[in-house]
Design a protein around this nucleic acid. Structure first.
Lengths: 344, 344
DNA sequence: TTGTATGCGTTATCAC
DNA sequence: GTGATAACGCATACAA
């Protein structure tokens, strides 16, 4: 028996039903625009709902429907330009379809990534979109999603080993190749390379493409001029100091992100090294900062919006048609573009 | 009667209970580390849960508890440096306490902001954190939160009119004052001003502080050198062209964000105007781009991390102690700092 | 320390 | 076109 609760402020469909002398089922149907309900009742219900200040309870609804309409997302950091743009584009698209994005940051820590995966897993997200942390080489923490048939999509930084999931990534091999070819074509022969760790797919593939370009031109990549590390400005400066310590100096640098390319330009400025005459630089990502510094930096554009659109499309297909989930290891490659500026 | 479902893959506490010959209540308690349960049972339950691949269902839990452990958030754009840093700091703190952040972007559109507020409202977020869109001057879409006793906190871009909500904001008045004083002290007397629209609290207050500085020095702000508009690079260029169209030129510019200050530096470079000799520039926000351009830009730091920490603290207090919700119109001001660089 | 019973708010199924 | 009912999974009050 329902007791009288004078302070009961939350209105449920039952309250509306009572007020209108109809059943809760009818109210639910009317509110959901179910076609089997008369126009008149629909209106009566909606008006009364408005009047009573009813708000839909998506927890109850989700529990009943077994879907939360929430898409989980794990990214390294939202402050990275590429990811910020990607997230925005994805969010705009998903919002149109009634989904919300729950964006979490791993801060490039594998252990945080694991915790977030667990949390999102029990939060019952309808799908998970991930760009991996820098050193994640084991993907067990995502197994549950696939086992439960929850769509799992990796973008940009994707598994380097075989793993049952959808993958949508940039053409990093080509990016590395373009960068290498471009440096060579503009006359470089002694090239330094500052890369991210090879545990991370994007750096691994950029390295392969870059290496291929050098091999073709029979240019050797000097061991002492190669770095594989987290691409912070500070690390970049340390590497640059090491690279320019001796008499023999490179005439080109491929930096695997723009933060590092930026540091290289600043380093050269400090050292009085002329760009592009004495030193050419190519970065990666087309971060806005790359076009602001003097000289503006030649870089590789990854087309984050297009990548987001492809992820959105894949996601929506998977969400709408469960039968598509039988296949869970598709792979798409998004083209990259070299943007030439004044450092080459 | 429970039917046999061969493909039933989701394990509930009932399944664990049956497997262990205990009640569901016991399982629930064991899983939640309820002290009134024996160590032995707790372990048995947890082991079995692990074995069966049980995952907690937060929808059911939320429905029952009437709390979602989700904090809603509406920001203009996550690609703005200030907001990206703020969000990250807030998220890190809230995660420690078991809350998730649902970050939504208004894209500076009031109508999107309204929709997001409605969605988050029926998503049953436990609290809402908002930085307003550029032209939002009516706050009705947030009324529901306060009515339901859901903590509502505005940060940075806050209501300009009296509104029952918690406010944590930067000292924009002081920021404007500092910028004005600094330009005057470094010798400017003919000052141009490119501001955001005055519908937005931050620009309104920066304008007041700036105006106060000029008044004190008996410097008049020329009508034709004042702009109040969305602070995009494109708008900035248009304004700059208008400002520098005639013979009489300003010797100082206060740009109310760094995007605009950046444009001013580039404009000056294009026009051959010497900075800081012929023209001094002060920006706002301490965006990383401001320190990268040549010459690096003098700007105002808003201390996003400190602001986020204060919001987190306020939020957690409100969440933990419902009695605090009696007061819903507190106000905190976070100090700002002038960062002097080479444009002044 | 554990079990029983109940309800959170919604919606699908079946009946009329 | 509408109603009655059950069930989603969990956690609490109350009993034992």
């Amino acid at each position: 028996m329902r007791e009288h609760k004078p302070d009961k402020s939350e209105i449920s469909i039952v309250d509306i039903a009572e007020a209108l002398n109809v059943s809760a089922a009818t109210v639910s149907r009317a509110l959901n625009d179910n076609p089997r309900i008369s126009e008149a009742t629909r209106k009566r219900v909606k008006d009364k709902a408005e009047e009573l200040g009813y708000r839909h309870n998506s927890m109850a609804s989700s529990l009943r429907n077994k879907r939360s309409n929430i898409i989980g997302m794990i990214v390294p950091r939202i402050s990275m330009y590429f990811h910020a743009i990607f997230i925005t584009a994805l969010q705009n698209r998903l919002q149109e379809e009634g989904y919300s994005l729950m964006v979490c940051q791993s801060n490039d820590s594998e252990s945080i990534e694991q915790k977030l995966a667990a949390t999102l897993y029990s939060s019952r997200v309808d799908a998970l979109v991930v760009s991996l942390a820098l050193y994640t080489e084991d993907y067990k923490h995502f197994d549950g999603f696939t086992k439960q048939g929850i769509p799992l999509i990796f973008y940009d930084r994707v598994p380097t080993k075989t793993y049952a999931a959808h993958i949508i990534k940039g053409d990093d091999y080509r990016g590395g190749l373009l960068a290498g070819n471009h440096l060579i074509e503009t006359g470089c022969s002694k090239i330094a390379y500052i890369s991210g760790p090879l545990s991370c797919s994007i750096y691994k593939e950029r390295t392969e493409g870059f290496q291929h370009a050098l091999d073709k031109a029979k240019i050797k990549l000097e061991r002492k001029w190669c770095f594989y590390q987290e691409l912070t400005a500070e690390n970049a400066w340390n590497s640059l100091r090491q690279i320019f310590v001796g008499k023999e100096r490179p005439d080109g640098i491929f930096a695997s992100n723009d933060t590092t390319a930026l540091a290289a330009v600043e380093f050269a400025r400090e050292q009085g090294i002329k760009i592009p005459d004495e030193l050419k630089i190519v970065g990666y990502s087309n971060d806005p900062r790359a076009s602001i510094i003097s000289p503006p930096i030649t870089t590789i554009d990854q087309h984050p919006v297009e990548m987001a659109n492809r992820v959105a499309q894949k996601l929506l297909n998977l969400l709408k048609d469960k039968s598509l989930r039988a296949i869970n290891d598709t792979r798409e490659i998004v083209p990259v573009t070299l943007v030439r500026r004044m450092t080459t």
